[in-house]
Design a protein around this nucleic acid. Structure first.
Length: 278
DNA sequence: CACCCCACCTGCGTGC
DNA sequence: TGCACGCAGGTGGGGT
């Protein structure tokens, strides 16, 4: 469910309340996540350690603990990290509960279990991060680099934008929104984009992700932040989920098509194929 | 390699 | 009401 903005909102929500707290114990649910350390590994490496830092890489959250231990969390499609001060044993689909000092519980809830929770002992390198590309807000993400990555590639722009190994953090909702803002057709083969096009893609990516973070993320179905609140950016979506509704710019109906089995929403007029955006 | 498809899960809305 | 089907903020393994 969560893309970069939602994960970042959760990180910012958790950090002030978790930094400096000590992990006391971990409760592990019966059903396993797609990628999950064993109960033994959680119990060996987590209890007694203080949370020093919470970082984000793409859609991953990294909890840096005392003694060089790292807890890596990915929320998949329906994962939530809820910070609760009362008993949380009545919540459904809870897979991990991290008990902290001060009576706080950090609860990992995930209906579909596509999420990940992996512990890395001191010195162990979190391998999943090797698959994560550049951060959209980093200086390493430039129009020239995007153009170089796209050189000789034929895949549709939408698929390229969503490829976390290139640019990290963009998922199905924001990919449609970014391409609408950049006035580029989602099916355009990436090798056809000019440097100017890539500049616009990057600019709109940053603008939209930033706006979404400021609005607390997008809630279309499941997403809740660490306090159990929805986001507000769904009110600002211009194309996602709006098939058949009028384009906010030109009034034509928003279209929907599939890329790699995922729905793409776009305006056939504003994002006309072969037409350079402005 | 580059690219595509599908599996991995559960729940919900729709249409018959 | 009941059931089948399609679809849902992601990732990665396997096939072409």
């Amino acid at each position: 469910m969560p893309e970069l903005p939602e994960v970042e909102v959760i990180r910012r929500g958790l950090a002030p309340r978790l930094l400096g707290r000590r992990l006391l114990a971990v409760t592990v649910g019966e059903k396993r996540l797609r990628q999950e350390s064993s109960p033994g590994e959680f119990r060996e490496w987590l209890p007694g350690r203080t949370i020093l830092e919470i970082e984000r890489r793409g859609k991953y959250l990294l909890f840096r603990l005392e003694g060089g231990v790292t807890l890596l969390i990915h929320l998949g499609m329906t994962g939530r990290l809820l910070l609760r001060s009362g008993p949380s044993n009545l919540l459904p689909h809870v897979h991990l509960t991290f008990h902290l000092d001060g009576g706080l519980d950090l609860v990992f809830q995930d209906v579909r279990r596509f999420g990940q929770a992996l512990v890395f002992p001191p010195g162990a390198h979190p391998a999943p991060l090797d698959q994560v590309g550049r951060e959209p807000f980093s200086r390493q993400a430039t129009p020239a680099w995007l153009a170089a990555e796209a050189r000789g590639r034929s895949r549709p722009l939408k698929n390229f934008l969503m490829d976390a190994r290139v640019l990290a953090g963009i998922g199905n909702i924001y990919a449609s929104e970014i391409l609408f803002a950049a006035r580029l057709h989602p099916s355009t083969p990436v090798s056809r984009l000019s440097l100017k096009d890539w500049s616009r893609v990057l600019k709109e990516t940053r603008r939209i992700l930033k706006a979404a973070i400021a609005k607390g993320g997008t809630t279309v179905a499941n997403y809740l932040n660490d306090r159990g609140e929805t986001g507000l950016f769904q009110l600002e979506l211009l194309v996602y989920g709006r098939a058949g509704e009028p384009c906010r710019v030109c009034g034509r109906p928003i279209a929907r098509m599939a890329h790699g089995g995922r729905s793409t929403f776009f305006c056939p007029k504003c994002q006309e194929e072969g037409v350079e955006g402005r």
